[in-house]
Design a protein around this nucleic acid. Structure first.
Lengths: 210, 210
DNA sequence: AACTGTGAAGTTTTTCACAGCC
DNA sequence: GGCTGTGAAAAACTTCACAGTT
C-alpha cells in the first residue's frame, strides 16, 4: 500500500528494472505464473531485499505469502518504464556496427522498432539492410521531426559522434544510445547511454591474474 | 604519496577507470600533454573530486598546481587494469552479432585480440569472417586450454548462453562478456559482464514524456 | 509456512573543503 | 593562482529484521 508516485526514484533503481523485466519474461517463457523476490534474486545475483525495496517504490506489486504474479508484474514494469508502447528508433551509421544493429531481432518484442537507418557516405546511401534502405544524413532531421522520433542509436566513428549527436538533439531526439567509444555531451533534458564492450572487458581484466 | 596496494578498491571505482582511460586516449589524440581532474570531469560528466579520489587509490599520479601528465596517467591506468598486455579472446556464436563482433576493429588497440570464433551450427563452421575461419564448438575447450585463453565473448542465442558459459568456465575461461539478453550464473572466481542494448533503451524511456 | 513491504541500521559512495605543493 | 590528495561530512544505497498478510 503506497503509490509513492510523488517522490523521485533513484536512477540506480530505474537501471535495475529492465533486468527484472528481462528475467521475468524468461520465467514467463518457462511457463511460470508466480515468482518471489528470492527466486528472482538468485537468478540475477541481487539480494531479495533489494528487489522488494526497488519494486516497493511503485506500489505493492506482490502478495505476502505468495510472491509476485509474473504477468502482472511484467505489465507493471512495462508501464513504469513506458515500454508498453512501441518506440520508433533511428540508427545512424551503416558500417559494420550499424548493419549489425539494424539486423538485430531483439528490439522488436521489447518495445523498440527501427524506423530508419542513416549514413553520410554516398556509397552507403541507397544500400539495402534487411528491410531498410540507407538514407542520407541530410534527410535525417526532417525524418526525425516528421515521425516524432525520440530515440537514436549512434554507430558512427568516434570523431563524428559529437556532431551527429548535436544534430540529433537539434532534430528533437531525447535519448541516445551511443556505440562510439567516446563520451558525448548533451543537454540535461536528453538521456544518454553508452555501449562500449571494451570498457567491460577492461573492468574484468583488473581482476584476472596476469 | 600513498601506494595503498593493500586495501581493496571498490568495484565501482574500477568500473570508472576504463572511462578515464578512454577519455585520456582521446585527449592524447588531440595532442594534449597535460590535463586536470576538472577538464576530465567536464568531459565525462563526473565530479573532479570523484576523479581525484578514484585515482588516489593507486598512488599520487598528479602534480599539485599542474594536473596529470596524460601519457603517464594512461600508462598507470593500463597497468592497474592490466591492459598493458594483449589479451587473447574467443568469440562464441557466429550469427549476425558474432560476425559484427569479429569484424569490430576497436578491440585491438585497447588490449584485446580475437583468437578464434566458434559456432555449433554445421553451416557456419568453416565459413570465413574477415581473418577467421569459424571453428566447431567441439574444439573450443581444447583451443582455449592450449592457448591459455581467459576471456570469452558470448554471442549465442539466449537459450544456449548458460550451457556455453558453463563449458567456457570448465575450459578455463575466467571472464565472460555476455551479449545474450539473459542472466547467467558463474562461479565467484569468474567475472561476468553484460551487453544488452535494450536494457539501456528501457532505462532511458522511463525519463521520456510519452 | 511463506513471502511482502518497510522503518531502522549499517555500509558504501560522493562531495566538501582545505592544507600543501608547484 | 591553480591544482592535487585527503580526512571529515554528507548523501545515497543496501541490508536487516520483523510486523503483517495470505
Amino acid at each position: 500500500m503506497s503509490a509513492k508516485s510523488a517522490e523521485t526514484i533513484p536512477d540506480i533503481v530505474i537501471g535495475r528494472l529492465p533486468l527484472y523485466l528481462r528475467a521475468l519474461r524468461r520465467l514467463q517463457q518457462d511457463d511460470k505464473q508466480v515468482t518471489s523476490s528470492q527466486e528472482l534474486g538468485k537468478r540475477l545475483d541481487i539480494s531479495s531485499a533489494q528487489i522488494r525495496k526497488d519494486l516497493s517504490h511503485f506500489g505493492g506489486f506482490g502478495k505476502q505469502g505468495t510472491g509476485y504474479q509474473i504477468e502482472f508484474l511484467i505489465e507493471r514494469l512495462q508501464d513504469v518504464l513506458q515500454v508498453n508502447q512501441d518506440w520508433s528508433v533511428v540508427v545512424v551509421g551503416a558500417g559494420n556496427l550499424g548493419i549489425a544493429i539494424s539486423h538485430y531481432r531483439g528490439f522488436q518484442d521489447r518495445g523498440f522498432s527501427i524506423a530508419d537507418v542513416f549514413d553520410i557516405s554516398p556509397e552507403k546511401i541507397g544500400q539495402r539492410i534487411g528491410n531498410y534502405v540507407v538514407q542520407p544524413v541530410g534527410s535525417m532531421a526532417e525524418a526525425i521531426h516528421d515521425k516524432g522520433i525520440k530515440i537514436a542509436m549512434l554507430a558512427v566513428p568516434a570523431e563524428d559522434a559529437q556532431s551527429v549527436a548535436d544534430q540529433l538533439v537539434e532534430a528533437g531526439v531525447r535519448a541516445i544510445l551511443n556505440y562510439a567509444p567516446i563520451n558525448i555531451n548533451v543537454p540535461d533534458h536528453v538521456q544518454i547511454q553508452y555501449i562500449d564492450p571494451v570498457t567491460h572487458l577492461q573492468r574484468m581484466t583488473y581482476y584476472l591474474e596476469a
